[in-house]
């Protein structure tokens, strides 16, 4: 159970972020934070995967899909849920340790950590854009049907 404690922390941290990014509806604040907690839950549950970037990729896909579903259900822009939900996945730690190795002059570790961080960022970006393009493809077809 202790293993999932970070999800709770992520939930509260995301809720605080809602106040920084001016989300005002209580229902939105709850759902955004829940999205953030779920993103980390997916990351934790996929620990059987050997590549870290793959875990980030799957977690981002889950968050983006949820954000799009919530957006459709609540008739609000998906960005709102995505922006907050993705925050726990942002590789802040990677950026820090990369820089830490740089000041200590450990260039082997600096390169390794730097590339790992870049891979994580790339995986997040790829996951988010995959879902977005898929959703746009589907909604475009729906609009085309409505017009014909």
């Amino acid at each position: 159970m202790l293993r999932f404690l970070p999800c709770l922390y992520a939930f509260i941290a995301c809720a605080s972020f809602c106040y920084i990014f001016q989300v005002r509806k209580p229902r939105f604040i709850f759902l955004c934070s829940l999205n953030g907690a779920i993103s980390w839950l997916v990351y934790l549950l996929t620990d059987f995967l050997p590549v870290e970037a793959a875990r980030y990729f799957l977690a981002t896909i889950a968050v983006s899909a949820l954000a799009e579903i919530l957006a459709r259900a609540l008739k609000a822009p998906a960005t709102i849920f995505l922006v907050i939900g993705i925050i726990p996945l942002v590789p802040g730690g990677g950026l820090y340790y990369t820089m830490d190795y740089l000041i200590s002059g450990d260039f082997a570790m600096f390169t390794a950590k730097g590339l790992q961080t870049a891979a994580a960022a790339g995986a997040i970006a790829a996951g988010a854009s995959m879902v977005t393009s898929l959703v746009r493809m589907l909604t475009w077809r729906k609009q085309a049907h409505a017009q014909s």
Partner: peptide
């Protein structure tokens, strides 16, 4: 390290990273 990583989340441009790819796809 834990403190700095925790506080740096306020500054890291995570949203921009995801938006870059979304804009590019569009």
């Amino acid at each position: 390290d834990m403190i700095i990583i925790g506080a740096i989340m306020l500054l890291v441009p995570g949203i921009a990273i995801t938006n870059v790819m979304r804009d590019m796809i569009a």
